[in-house]
Computed example of a mutant assay.
Amino acid sequence: MATGISTGPDGTALGPTGRPVKEFPVPEFLDGHGPARIISLCNQKGGVGKTTTTISLGAALADYGRKVLCVDFDPQGALSAGLGVRTHDVTTVYDLLLSSRTDPHTAIQPTNVPGLDVIPANIDLSAAEVHLVNEVAREQILAGVLRKLSGEYDVILIDCQPSLGLLTVNALTASHGVLIPLESEFFALRGVALLIETIDKVRDRLNPAIELDGILTTMFDSRTLHAREVLERVVEAFGDTVLDTVIGRTVKFPDASVAGTPITEFAPDHPAAKAYRQLARELIARGAVA
Rank of each mutant, 00 (worst) to 15 (best):
E152G: 12
D95N: 11
P208W: 11
D200A: 15
G46Y: 06
A137N: 15
S184L: 10
T53W: 05
I158S: 06
S40V: 01
F220D: 06
D244R: 03
E152R: 15
G115T: 09
D31Y: 11
T106S: 11
L69S: 01
G47R: 11
R101S: 14
R66D: 02
T241K: 14
G248A: 12
F29D: 13
P9L: 13
D117M: 11
L125R: 03
P110I: 02
V234P: 03
I55A: 06
E183G: 13
D95H: 10
V118E: 00
F253G: 01
A209M: 12
A81I: 11
P262R: 00
T51S: 09
R286D: 00
V246E: 03
L83S: 02
G8P: 10
T54G: 04
S150P: 09
V113Y: 05
R19G: 02
I38L: 01
A272S: 12
N43D: 11
A171N: 07
K148P: 06
L179Q: 08
A128K: 08
A227F: 04
L125K: 09
L61A: 00
D89Y: 09
D255C: 10
M1S: 15
P208E: 12
I263P: 00
S80Q: 03
D95C: 06
V118S: 02
S175M: 00
G165Y: 10
D89R: 14
P104D: 02
I5T: 13
Q161P: 11
I123N: 11
Y64F: 12
I156G: 09
G191H: 08
R233L: 15
L132A: 09
L97G: 05
L212V: 13
T173L: 07
R281D: 07
K50W: 05
L189T: 13
Q140F: 13
R223V: 08
H226Q: 15
D269W: 07
V155A: 04
D255R: 12
V242D: 01
Y64P: 02
R66T: 03
C160W: 10
V235E: 08
D213L: 00
F24V: 01
E232Y: 14
V136T: 15
H131D: 15
I263T: 06
S100Q: 14
D204P: 04
K67C: 05
V68M: 00
G18V: 01
D200F: 05
L14R: 05
L57Q: 00
I39T: 09
A36E: 02
A137K: 14
A171I: 02
T53G: 05
V230A: 04
G191E: 09
L30D: 09
G151M: 09
E135F: 14
E197T: 13
R277G: 05
E282S: 07
C42V: 15
D269I: 08
A81T: 15
G15H: 02
S40N: 04
L212G: 08
C160V: 08
I39C: 07
